[in-house]
């Protein structure tokens, strides 16, 4: 392309134009760097005061100005795990249905429907979760689980609908379209010849899928899971509505809990003491570092998978 950069009077405008666009691109890097620097700078107060204990102790006392975020971090991890445990298998099954079982004509519509779930704003999931889904959980799902699993500590406590389990399930619905979309792509990338040879050996569709398609596209499926994980972990409003806002760590999935995002959404605007605010920002920093690591891994991973599967 250098060939066309001709010397002359208009070279100046062209250079200026190029520089302006370059600044635009550089600004993106600058924002990223500033974001990290600001989070660190504003957490310093809390980092100095509480050190690493901020991450593993569970005290959240704005009055005594003692902060340890274990409950929020725990809630983020557990609700995300619940979401992944539900959304990954569901996403694989839906992708299987879309790619292998439905005729293209209908598949297109079903796909659009499932993917539209991704367009529903987080706060709408929150509204629906709080006013419709949580009561449904309390009246139907939780008593049912109680009936099946009896006195298991996982399902103890009053079935109030709001809590860790409900938050996890709603998160699963939210990340389902992303996982489905990626797994669908992966399934379609598996060469027909490979599947056909398995079919030719007399395998059933499920055998082809579980032993050939998924194995062939295994890394892609892992990539899809990572993508979902990155989404779920930073999801805010939906979780804030239904997780219950309790800074207690409980073994029961029915119990109200908290997540990093929910704590931030609920308490940030009212935090007046510098150390309180700083602790909340450090909580944000923890979340940022977590998502950053997941994002980096999933990007590198997906890039590798695409290269291996021969997609540019």
């Amino acid at each position: 392309m250098k060939l066309f950069g001709k010397a002359g009077s208009r070279n100046l405008t062209d250079t200026a134009f190029k520089l302006t666009t370059m600044l635009g691109a550089a600004l993106l890097l600058l924002i990223m760097a500033a974001l990290f620097a600001e989070l660190v700078r504003n957490s310093l107060l809390s980092i100095e005061k509480f050190g690493w204990s901020f991450i593993y102790t569970n005290v959240w006392d704005p009055v005594k100005e003692q902060f340890g975020a274990a409950a929020s971090i725990w809630g983020t991890v557990v609700s995300t795990l619940i979401a992944m445990a539900l959304a990954v298998p569901l996403g694989i099954l839906i992708a299987l249905f879309l790619v292998e079982l439905l005729p293209e004509r209908i598949s297109k519509w079903v796909r659009t429907g499932v993917e539209l779930l991704a367009a529903v704003p987080s706060i709408i999931f929150g509204m629906w979760g709080l006013f419709v889904f949580a009561p449904f959980m309390a009246e139907t799902v939780q008593p049912f689980l109680r009936g099946v699993f009896g006195d298991s500590p996982l399902f103890s406590g009053p079935p109030i609908g709001i809590g860790m389990l409900t938050a996890g399930i709603i998160l699963a619905f939210m990340i389902l379209p992303f996982i489905t979309a990626v797994v669908r792509d992966v399934f379609q990338m598996v060469p027909a010849v490979v599947k056909e040879s398995a079919h030719g050996m007399g395998s059933t569709l499920w055998e082809v899928t579980s032993k050939v398609t998924i194995r062939y596209g295994f890394q892609g499926v892992v990539g899809a899971a990572l993508l979902g994980l990155g989404r779920a972990i930073g999801e805010t409003m939906a979780v804030t509505f239904v997780i219950g806002n309790s800074h207690k760590i409980s073994a029961s999935l029915f119990a109200p809990a908290n997540s990093i995002t929910a704590t931030l959404a609920n308490e940030f605007a009212e935090a007046s003491e510098p150390i309180y605010l700083s602790s909340l920002i450090e909580l944000g920093l923890v979340l940022f570092v977590l998502t950053f690591i997941i994002q980096v891994i999933s990007q590198i991973w997906l890039k590798r998978v695409k290269k291996q599967m021969g997609v540019q």
Partner: peptide, 22 residues
């Protein structure tokens, strides 16, 4: 730039809220 654009897209929106707040 592409790499970090993707990362910024995946950064939770509440973190961006905090950043602008500061």
């Amino acid at each position: 730039v592409r790499f970090f654009a993707n990362i910024l897209m995946g950064t939770p929106s509440i973190i961006i809220g905090i950043f602008i707040y500061t």
